[in-house]
Design a protein around this nucleic acid. Structure first.
Lengths: 114, 114
DNA sequence: CCGCATCCTACGGGATACTG
DNA sequence: CAGTATCCCGTAGGATGCGG
């Protein structure tokens, strides 16, 4: 296994996932499917409209999510995971499992600092 | 599956992996085992001493890598993956596989922008 | 050989207000 | 409802130099 090509690939995936609200957005879209903007805003805890829009745009630019605008008043915009985006699920799951398995270890670490 | 607890866990893993040089450092230590500071510096392309030290310290603080100092002149410091750190391998591998599988997709995206 | 101290910059993230 | 437009701040990352 060569190092440098691997680095690039790992960083590509990382680059897409990194962003304060991206994991929760993706997790929600993966679990619950198509979601409207305001519903996402309610679900993502404490996010501002500006930030939510920004994160969604970035994911859309990467072709991870799909944005559908219904030309009506009041506006309606729906977001969903793209086929491409679905391929990220194993990574998200690997992280989820890791986090679940190591919650204990983390608690032990914080304990040391007392 | 609940959303919010999952978020935390995903972000914990993400938090550890994020850092400009962390993936390549971890990949190297996972593949090649124990490595001296200067060797890492040669291997990680374009990293400065300050940044390499910083990233290594952060990984050490998270208990992902182990730092061994040999009290001699000139100094010798060796870094290796901890047992805990090894548990990150599935995540790194998931990202690697994803990146490898989607190199094509990425090339098609850049093509669109022409 | 390994690392710290200092100083600097760019950018991710945020608060707030306005609009089709 | 679903966004932009401004202004602001902290911190990750970097350049450079000294020191045990």
């Amino acid at each position: 296994m060569q190092i440098e090509p691997d680095l690039c690939r790992v960083e590509d995936a990382l680059g897409i996932l990194v962003g304060k609200w991206k994991p929760i957005i993706l997790l929600h879209l993966l679990n619950k499917g198509t979601t409207r903007f305001n519903e996402l805003k309610r679900i993502v805890p404490g996010v501002t409209q500006r930030m939510l829009t920004k994160q969604l745009r970035e994911l859309e630019d990467e072709d991870i999510i799909v944005r559908v605008v219904y030309p009506q008043v009041p506006p309606k915009v729906e977001y969903s995971i793209s086929e491409y985006g679905k391929s990220l699920e194993p990574i998200l799951m690997a992280m989820h499992e890791w986090g679940a398995a190591h919650t204990l270890h983390k608690m032990q670490l914080t304990k040391k600092k007392d």
